[in-house]
Write a protein that binds this DNA or RNA. Structure first.
Length: 837
RNA sequence: GCACGAGUGGCGAAACUGGCAGACGCAGCAGACUUAAAAUCUGCAGGCUCUUCAAUGGGCCGUCCGGGUUCGAUUCCCGGCUCGUGCACCA
């Protein structure tokens, strides 16, 4: 055998796989399909280690399942629209399409050096009209169903640079705002009032929430993040009459049981009733406060540490239960877009109300005691459930009882209703940028004076992005770039044929990733987003691998979209993904996130060049369990390189004697030992792969190789036919076990030992059950739970026999001498324990 | 504050359903080969400690802390600490 040379064998095998179409979807299978998917990347110029790890986790499964006989779908594509290309264009004038095409080419070339088992025939590019026309199609379908609408509202505008950040200069979704800054560029997010298009995702809040219980193979942290994000809250809405007016203030509360203790009402500064509630005497103060609040963003008004502030409107409301007159205030902490924008304040039983009441000397009335014994004696508010006091006919009832019966009372009186409120808002997806999907809407003065928007007819799709002069259109300033392209924006009205203007906004790129997993299955389908027949067979995705940072964005959006696709009859599943795997981050050797600034980055291409793709792959899976972060370690990479060479040496040294040698009949002595090592390793590795424990799979292979090397056993000196045949088999099995992790290496090994086709086209081997058990096995012997000895016993030994062997051991004898054995615990094949008195 | 996750040698980690804690690897130490180094191969390796010239053999402690259940707990239960993530003046 020649020397191990990754730079020679890796391109060779990559070419083989491509030529033979080894990884194509659609092969006949009696076992069914497995759809293995990794989150599609934004094609930046080059890969980072995170990509390598992400795709590898999918690749191990894709290869493994293929060898188990499944029809495997394993596609890759490009999330090609988006801001980086557009921002770069603003800087250097290169058209986003040009740059994107270049990036895809280089990114793809790099991905291919790692030898992933992709079916490149399924490749998808979301920035191609062939793809994004279906975004537009979905938009129109959803518009028809009332799932898309235009609203005028306060939006999150990413436009204020912080510490040199480059703002996106566009609206972003709630999901993209983290702690008041843009999750993408870290610029400050400000409130802006403007029209925008939104998806009615909240129509599915309940469904999205309920189905989380069924996503048993999703990580808890993801389902829990979605649960928090959706934020279901059960309570009631109740009307407070306004004194001296027919006006009502509707409040939302989860604690209607405390309503007898409501001593004031607070509304948001931008609540619709503020003007009507305000008395002439208070007007100046209220106006000043409202103005001051309007100047601040939601984040500035509500983030932690901001002091509660409010003013009295002069108006009063009537508590519907006590008929008491309570003052109405406005305060900074009340949000107009949650609940009804008005709250009944019960300072005795809510921390926040308590703080506000103390600050402004408002009365505090206790209406709930912790229990029948008496009042709460601690500091501040008593916020838990308890027993009602001073609450009329509800006095003496528990909080839970009171909530039910008070809700019924309100409903009967026609002044309230049980109500579920959600934290999740609709998904605003208008973006004031160029490099995205044009929204297929036109505005016609004549047909649509109120500017609701007229849908572009299906027959006119796609509405393609116009050719542009980059430096004129992509300036990063002013109105949406497309509005500057007169030849494009000016069009004719599909209804009256008169002059009209196109919608100049584009869609959030998260729209693209909502359904790409279905498009992969029929990437060039022309009459619908994808072929429903194929989708029926291949969906849902069985394994989806990606980063946990998408918990409340992509992973929520595409669940929503799948529901819509089901309603449209495009697919039969409601949930897109059965099993979700979220991989941890690969940090620099210094423990910090890899970055240019720190100079702690390790480029995959460097590692491939230095050691080959297989070493890079082997290291990344061996470094730790998939979901955990790990720090890069150059030395450990070398360790994998050494390991591969050790395997190579083993196979190489045995090659001339063992290659192709077979032996029928029983193996004995060293030959049996070799076979046992190989079959045990096969069993162990298979089980490890099944439970996503790739690092221990590698460890198991290392152990087997170490055992074959062991000089005490001398297994590498092959003197008989039996031994040669056993070694031949061992190398063959090792190459199978290795192939999901280090495919080029494994195939080269197999080929040197006579394989005529790639291992991925062969079946995953089965271990021989007779070879994975030993005749004599170790037992741990405990006395009172403490380890006292280790003994060997025959596999078939009975409890009494093992006990006799244990009692014969000197250490055990000493430990139980002079004591009576009260109990003898026997765990077959593992351990015995003497309980003595 | 609420929710979720994690905490094991110098380091990355393992221990599948309550059954020998630390597999495998990195770093380390020692040895073989070599003029030498690298590479390779071999051995040692949680802490403390006892017997012994030594090899070896033994004892005690040890999986964030404190309790509990159990013959036996890294694993299950209760309470707490620390770190990470999500949500958060959400009524």
């Amino acid at each position: 055998m020649h020397e191990y040379q990754p730079s020679v064998i890796e391109p060779k095998w990559q070419q083989q796989w491509t030529q033979r179409g080894t990884f194509r979807m659609g092969r006949p299978s009696t076992k069914g399909k497995k759809y293995v998917l990794e989150m599609l990347p934004y094609p930046s110029g080059s890969m980072h280690m995170g990509h390598v790890r992400n795709y590898l986790l999918g690749d191990v499964y894709a290869r493994y399942f293929r060898m188990l006989g499944y029809d495997v779908v394993h596609p890759m594509g490009w999330d090609a629209f988006g801001l980086p290309a557009e921002n770069a264009a603003i800087k250097d004038g290169v058209h986003p399409a040009t740059r994107t095409a270049q990036n895809i080419a280089s990114f793809k070339a790099e991905i291919q050096t790692l030898g992933y088992s992709y079916d490149w025939d399924l490749e998808v590019n979301t920035s191609s009209p062939e793809y994004y026309r279906w975004n537009q199609w979905f938009f129109l379908k959803m518009l028809e169903r009332g799932l898309v609408y235009r609203r005028f509202s306060k939006v999150n505008w990413c436009g204020e640079s912080v510490k040199g950040s480059v703002p996106c200069n566009t609206v972003i979704a709630n999901e993209q705002v983290k702690d008041g800054v843009c999750e993408r560029c870290d610029s400050k997010v400000i409130d802006k009032n403007m029209p925008e298009w939104a998806f009615r995702i909240t129509k599915y809040s309940q469904s999205l929430l309920d189905a989380l219980d069924g996503l048993k193979e999703w990580p808890d942290r993801i389902t829990s993040a979605q649960r928090n994000w959706i934020g279901r809250s059960e309570g009631v809405e109740a009307d407070f009459a306004v004194e001296g007016s027919t006006e009502k203030i509707r409040v939302f509360t989860t604690r209607v049981d405390t309503i007898h203790g409501c001593t004031y009402v607070v509304v948001a500064p931008d609540h619709a009733s503020v003007a009507k509630l305000t008395t002439p005497a208070q007007k100046a103060e209220v106006d000043a406060f409202v103005k001051k609040m309007a100047a601040r963003s939601k984040t500035e008004r509500t983030e932690e540490g901001v002091e509660k502030e409010g003013v009295f409107t002069g108006g009063f409301a009537i508590n519907p239960f006590t008929r008491a007159k309570v003052p109405v205030w406005i305060a900074n902490f009340v949000l107009s877009d949650y609940g009804t924008g008005a709250v009944m304040s019960v300072p005795a039983h809510d921390e926040r109300d308590h703080e506000f009441a103390v600050k402004y000397s408002l009365p505090i009335v206790t209406v709930v005691h912790p229990d029948a014994k008496g009042p709460f004696t601690g500091e501040g508010a008593f916020t838990e459930d308890g027993v009602l006091v001073g609450s009329g006919e509800w006095t003496g009832k528990t909080s839970a009882e009171a909530r039910t019966s008070m809700a019924a009372f309100l409903e009967k009186a026609g002044i309230g209703t049980p109500k579920v409120t959600w934290r999740q808002k609709d998904w605003g997806f208008s973006r004031q940028r160029y490099w995205g999907t044009p929204i297929p809407i036109v505005y016609c003065e004549k047909c649509d004076p109120e500017r609701h928007g007229i849908p572009v007819p299906y027959a006119q799709l796609p509405v393609t992005l116009p050719e542009i002069k980059v430096e004129e259109v992509l300036t990063g300033k002013g109105e949406p770039p497309l509005a500057k392209v007169a030849s494009w924006v000016n069009t004719t009205c599909p209804r009256c044929g008169g002059p009209a203007r196109r919608e100049a906004e584009t869609m959030d790129t998260f729209v693209d990733s909502c359904w790409y997993f279905a498009r992969y299955l029929s990437p060039h389908f022309e009459t619908a987003p994808f072929d429903a027949e194929v989708a029926k067979k291949m969906l849902p995705v069985d394994i989806y691998v990606g980063g946990p940072e998408h918990a409340t964005m992509h992973l929520l959006y595409f669940r929503f979209w799948t529901r819509v696709m089901k309603e449209l009859g495009l697919c039969t599943v409601e949930e897109p993904v059965t099993r979700l795997i979220t991989q941890g981050i690969v940090n620099g050797a210094d423990g910090f996130k890899m970055s240019k600034r720190r100079g702690n980055g390790v480029a995959p291409s460097e590692i491939v060049k230095k050691f080959g793709a297989d070493t890079a792959r082997g290291y990344v899976v061996f470094a730790g369990p998939p979901e955990r972060d790990f720090d890069w370690n150059d030395k450990a990479v070398e360790g994998i390189w050494k390991f591969l060479n050790r395997v190579w040496t083993l196979a190489s040294d045995a090659h001339d004697q063992a290659r192709g040698v077979t032996h029928e009949g029983p193996h004995t002595g060293k030959a049996l030992e070799i076979r046992k090592i190989a079959h045990k390793c096969l069993k162990r590795t298979t089980e490890a792969i099944e439970r996503l424990s790739f690092n221990t799979a590698i460890a198991g292979i290392m152990e087997a190789v170490n055992a074959l090397y062991d000089p005490k056993q001398g297994l590498r000196e092959l003197s008989t036919v039996e031994e040669r045949a056993a070694m031949n088999e061992a190398v063959r099995l090792l190459s199978f076990i290795l192939v999901p992790f280090v495919p080029h290496f494994a195939n080269e090994l197999a080929q040197a030992y006579g394989a005529t086709s790639p291992l991925e086209e062969q079946s995953w081997p089965a271990y021989d059950p007779a070879l994975v058990v030993d005749d004599v096995i170790p037992y741990a012997v405990q006395v009172m739970g403490k380890l006292r000895a280790e003994i060997m016993a025959p596999l078939a030994a009975t409890e009494a026999e093992v006990r006799a062997l244990a009692e014969a051991n000197d250490n055990v004898k000493a430990a139980i001498a002079g004591k009576t054995v009260k109990k003898f615990v026997f765990v077959p094949k593992r351990l015995v324990n003497f309980v003595v008195g």
